[in-house]
Every structure is written in C-alpha cells, then in structure tokens.
Amino acid sequence: MNLFRLVADLMHLVSIFILLLKMQKTRSVAGRCSRISFKTQALYATVFLTRYTDLFANFQSLYNTTMKVFFIASSLYIVFLMKFKFKATNDPRLDTFKAQYVVGGAAALALIVNYAFTVQEVLWTFSIYLEAVAILPQLFMLTKTGEAEVITTHYLFALGTYRGLYLVNWIYRYWTEYYVDWIVWIAGAVQTGLYCDFFYIYFTKVLKGAKFELP
C-alpha cells in the first residue's frame, strides 16, 4: 500500500458518501429529479459483484476485505434506493445512454482478452472493462441536460481523482516493486481519460464559484 492508492481508495469512499448525501438531499425537495444516472449506478453494482468473486478465497488484508464488502454493499444499497425508495426522483427520460452496448462490449472483450480463460478470471476482466466505461451514462446525462448541480460535480470530481491517483499508484508500483498489470492499466487509462473534459470545466468554472454548464 502506498499513499497514492490509499488516498485514491479514500476518494472512492468519499464519492459514495457524496452520492448518498445528494440522494438524501434530493428526496427532501419534492418532485425534483436527482440527475444521478441509475444506469451508471447499476453498472457499478455489477462491477463490484463480478470483481469480488474472490472475496472469501483470496484474503489480502482486513483493509482489502472490508473495502470490498463496503463497495458491494453500498453499490447495492444505492441501486435499491434509486429503484424503490427514491424512485420518483429518478427520471428515465434523461438516462438514455444505451448501457447494453457497453455491457456487451465489455463481456465480449473479456472473453477475448484476459489473463486466463476461467469463469472467475473472465468475470474479473469483465468487471475491469465495465468499470472503465460505467461512468458514461452519467456523463451522457450531463451533456444532455447541459448543466449539473455542484454536489453532482463534486461526486464526479471525487471519482475522477480516485482514478487519476490510481494511475500515479501504478507508475509508483512499477518502479518500486515491478508491479505489472496491463489489463488494469489500459482500462484504467481509458477510464481516467473519460474525465478530462469534466475536469476542465470543473476547474475553470465550479471551483471559481460558477455553475457547471457546458459551453
């Protein structure tokens, strides 16, 4: 464990807490749309469920296991909240990204490009590829509405920072322990790249107190 990875994981936790806060806040304003993509959240739940199939077989550390359990539980909880409890705040008319294509694409690629052709490995690889593109429905929703609330932008910023720090962590690990993981690296680079546009607007507008609006 290094500082980059630790802070990255903590930012991931922060993003989840921001999301829960945001949903709680949206519910208190009757009839309002949350503008959180249900599809993105459902994809994240799928990512965690397919990645941590080694939860009981592969023990790394108490930290590792606790985080895995938290990510699985919180992602399922968020999906549950959006689907049942806060259903009214969720507007499917804005959430129109064709998620089935990225699920199909990730599944096909996982069957072709993987480290070993076993059920667990293919599921793990699928989760890596799917995570890389899971934010797309949310970003697509953002471009559709053309603007975002501050709390939503903080959520995306926390997620983007978590991914960016993982890139730094991999460079650090390569030099210090000759750690290599091509599948994770390439998928991670793609995933971080998706946040570039968002980061640009976040830094030039939101941090200066302006509203998040697309040009």
Binding site: R5, D9, H12, D54, N58, Q60, N64, M67, K68, F71, Y115, W124, Y166, Y178, Y179, V180, D181, V184
Partner: peptide, 10 residues
C-alpha cells in the same frame, strides 16, 4: 521478468 498478477488492488 514476468510476474503473476497480484490482484491486491480494489
């Protein structure tokens, strides 16, 4: 050198 993937990340 080829190293086995550790899978110690989240």
């Amino acid at each position: 050198p080829r190293q086995r993937i550790k899978k110690d990340e989240l």
